[in-house]
Simulated assay, not measured.
Amino acid sequence: MTRLPPRLIDILLVAIAIADVIVDGDITSREHYIMAGIGCAGLLLRRRRPLLAYLLTLPASWMLAYLAAPAIALYTLADRTKNRALLAAAVLATSIAASAPWPPGTPVDSRPETLVSFAYSLAWAGAPVLLGQLMQTRRELSARLTEIEQARDHERHLHAQAALARERAQIGREMHDVVAHQVSLIAVRAGALQVAAPDPEVAEAARTIRGLSVDTLEELRHMVTLLRAAGGQTTDLTPQPTLADLRKLLASSGIEVHLTGDLPADLPAPTQRTIYRTVQEALTNVRKHAPGATATVHLAHTADHLSVTITNTRPTRPAVPLPSSHHGLVGLAERAELLGGTFTSAPTPTHGYRADLRLPR
């Protein structure tokens, strides 16, 4: 379905507001024309300045009994803001302006009629606000459902890839540990027979068997390499991450991350892997549980200890509920304990989160 351009929609809404003023027939002075024109033209600002567009409709709401322009302005304001206090004030202001007598000083027929008029104006002004809030909630819910569906698809893909990698790795291990071992024994025995055989024909046959066994071993090693690397899972074949890979990790994390401090470059490989995996898991948790937050990774070291601190600010939008095994932080603590260190994590007073890794030097 083809949607109208936003500018054309705004022009149509202004035309509707003008038609409402003309049909109402309350315009009796130049002031009425000016205020009605300002209120209707102000709708052209509703996308960029919804509050200003609403304020421009208030004077005419007091002078005239027009309905379209303030209703459109209230709907747009409610659709664009989450400030409930502002929306309540806007509804109240519109209701007062619509029910107050014009010109000022005009005698009121009776107090009950004034209260009825105010109640009617309050209900009328609240309707577009409720509709705008409903559309805002619907739009946000649709975006969240899309995010959840994408996350689930990604999770299913990761589970399938992990299962495939485990199966291929298991097959590779079986081929390496069983088949390759047996073929190696055949090659060794054939070599021994080749040396000890008194008959030249037997020695030649042993040499052939040994050559075929060696070729088979080479093919097996190649197949094991392909099985472990299948599906893009090259973790077992590529070099393990080091501190030199931290900046690349931060750049590809998908969030705003600041790196401060440094660590010695000559740390043992297990220590470097533990630091890398800790930062990786912490940033994954920030992206998953604190959307819109920024993170800071601080590295420090003394003569005896190394420390890595990852903190993040409070999220700026609600987190998408995703399935989780809750084993990530437990795994980080176990990694730290294996190296004689500690890992702790806890919320911060500013509604963020902090993770600390401390390892012996």
Score class of each variant (00 low, 15 high):
residue 306 L to D: 06
residue 266 D to W: 08
residue 148 I to W: 14
residue 34 I to F: 15
residue 27 I to D: 02
residue 2 T to G: 08
residue 333 A to I: 09
residue 44 L to W: 04
residue 152 R to W: 05
residue 140 E to F: 08
residue 50 P to S: 01
residue 304 D to A: 15
residue 73 A to L: 00
residue 254 G to R: 07
residue 74 L to V: 08
residue 348 T to F: 00
residue 171 I to D: 05
residue 203 A to Q: 11
residue 27 I to G: 07
residue 272 Q to N: 03
residue 260 T to Q: 10
residue 73 A to G: 03
residue 42 G to M: 13
residue 224 V to M: 12
residue 92 L to Q: 00
residue 276 Y to A: 01
residue 261 G to L: 00
residue 130 L to D: 07
residue 242 T to D: 08
residue 187 A to W: 06
residue 259 L to W: 13
residue 348 T to M: 04
residue 318 P to W: 03
residue 162 A to G: 06
residue 98 A to K: 09
residue 187 A to E: 12
residue 267 L to S: 09
residue 115 L to E: 12
residue 361 R to D: 11
residue 113 E to Y: 10
residue 192 A to G: 05
residue 127 A to S: 12
residue 251 A to I: 05
residue 346 A to K: 04
residue 299 L to F: 12
residue 51 L to G: 05
residue 114 T to Q: 14
residue 212 L to A: 06
residue 241 P to E: 06
residue 109 D to Q: 14
residue 278 T to D: 01
residue 52 L to P: 02
residue 115 L to K: 05
residue 288 K to H: 12
residue 112 P to K: 10
residue 60 A to G: 02
residue 287 R to N: 11
residue 63 M to T: 08
residue 23 V to A: 15
residue 329 L to K: 07
residue 333 A to V: 10
residue 186 I to C: 06
residue 250 L to D: 02
residue 24 D to V: 06
residue 258 H to R: 15
residue 184 S to A: 10
residue 41 A to T: 12
residue 200 P to K: 12
residue 66 Y to S: 12
residue 35 M to A: 13
residue 56 L to D: 05
residue 158 L to G: 07
residue 19 A to G: 00
residue 219 E to S: 14
residue 66 Y to A: 08
residue 22 I to V: 15
residue 313 T to R: 00
residue 355 A to G: 06
residue 337 E to M: 13
residue 72 I to R: 01
residue 167 E to G: 15
residue 251 A to K: 11
residue 141 L to S: 09
residue 37 G to S: 12
residue 84 R to H: 05
residue 77 L to Y: 07
residue 122 L to K: 00
residue 239 P to T: 06
residue 111 R to V: 15
residue 338 L to I: 04
residue 334 E to H: 07
residue 225 T to I: 02
residue 94 T to W: 02
residue 73 A to V: 02
residue 296 T to A: 10
residue 161 Q to Y: 09
residue 218 E to G: 15
residue 342 T to K: 03
residue 229 A to D: 13
residue 25 G to V: 08
residue 289 H to R: 01
residue 73 A to P: 02
residue 294 T to K: 00
residue 294 T to Q: 01
residue 17 A to C: 03
residue 105 G to D: 05
residue 185 L to M: 07
residue 8 L to T: 03
residue 277 R to N: 08
residue 48 R to A: 10
